[in-house]
């Protein structure tokens, strides 16, 4: 178990007053807010900051922490003194027991884990807390469904009530038709209850970026490159999708930027999403005599001014 230097984490001196500690915490809470932070490890840093503030903002916990002395350095291997524990009773300070279980081993050793810290009396039969995790999928998985193996770090209490992080591996079947942001609930896979049922595990679906497809709800967006004659004359072109190849009719006289909607060919479900194709006319290069000749013929024989505001 590594020693945590809570003063260093908040960037305050050991004799900082409560106001100074609160100010430092708020500054860091703003810096590492996961929705706006530009820092790569914002979530992990915020966890440390929450933990440090939980201890240093509470006079009892802070006094207990200070009793460990100043001889320790952050990251140093740490064992609590043999006479530690039993004499403190710590209350909850804003963080729920569920959140406190995400704090470090160091914290749970010092201030009690699931059995001690902040646990609101819920009676003998209480339901376990829900846990959350993200599951990263490919858009293809939304068509076919998939089975994903997830490794979760979950706090577990031993017989003495001490909390350690255990890695738990779950195989989860993802049903077809999932959308980004959707939540898959695995009933009973959260924290065990006390006499009551276990909590749920809630998995939030995220898609990996795809080379050609972008999902918006169950609709799929895709660029569709077409030749000038396909756009001008109309054509039926093949479109590769995760579910197979689809034939799509390009209407005569299509221009770049026109969007074609193919109903029901997005992510399956009830209702299924649509496939939205953005037409992009791609010009052949004039790099052979034949190609040059064809362009020159068009230039000579077609009365076409692309800058004419009145053109169709």
């Amino acid at each position: 178990m590594k020693y945590q230097d809570y003063y260093q984490i908040l960037g305050v001196s050991r004799d900082a007053g409560p106001e100074e500690i609160k100010k430092a915490f708020r500054r860091l809470a703003r810096k590492y807010h996961p929705d706006v932070s530009k820092e790569a490890d914002a979530e992990a840093r915020m966890q440390e900051v929450n933990e440090a503030y939980t201890v240093l903002s509470d006079p009892e916990k802070r006094a207990a922490y200070d009793r460990l002395g100043q001889g320790w350095h952050a990251g140093e291997e740490f064992r609590p003194p043999p006479d530690w524990g039993g004499e403190f009773h710590f209350g909850s300070h804003g963080f729920s027991p569920d959140e406190a279980t995400e704090f470090s081993d160091f914290f749970s050793q010092l201030f009690g884990g699931l059995g001690g810290f902040g646990r609101q009396p819920r009676g003998f039969r209480s339901r376990g807390a829900d846990h959350r995790a993200q599951v990263l999928l490919d858009i293809e998985d939304a068509f076919t469904g998939a089975t994903r193996q997830l490794s979760l770090q979950q706090p577990q209490a031993d017989a003495q009530g001490r909390v350690t992080l255990a890695t738990r591996t779950l195989n989860v079947k993802i049903p077809p038709g999932v959308r980004e942001g959707q939540i898959i609930r695995l009933a009973g896979q959260g924290e065990p209850g006390t006499g009551g049922p276990a909590g749920d595990l809630l998995l939030e679906v995220r898609f990996r970026p795809h080379a050609r497809l972008r999902a918006e709800g169950r609709n799929l967006h895709m660029a569709l490159p077409v030749a000038p004659w396909e756009a001008a004359l109309g054509a039926v072109v093949p479109v590769q999708l995760p579910a197979g190849t689809l034939k799509v009719r390009i209407p005569e006289g299509s221009q770049s930027g026109r969007q074609l909607r193919v109903r029901g060919k997005g992510i399956p479900g009830s209702p299924a999403g649509d496939l939205l194709l953005d037409i992009q006319v791609v010009l052949p290069r004039a790099d052979t005599p034949k190609a040059r000749q064809l362009y020159e013929t068009m230039a000579r024989e077609l009365a076409f001014d692309p800058r004419d505001a009145g053109r169709a």
């Binding site: 089975t147 738990r168 591996t169 779950l170 195989n171 989860v172 079947k173 993802i174 049903p175 038709g177 999932v178 959707q182 939540i183 898959i184 609930r185 695995l186 009933a187 896979q189 809630l202 998995l203």
Partner: peptide, 15 residues
């Protein structure tokens, strides 16, 4: 067992 495959339900369709 950890090897068992879990089948989840989709929220939003259940609320």
């Amino acid at each position: 067992r950890d090897e068992d495959v879990l089948i989840g339900s989709l929220l939003e369709e259940t609320w």
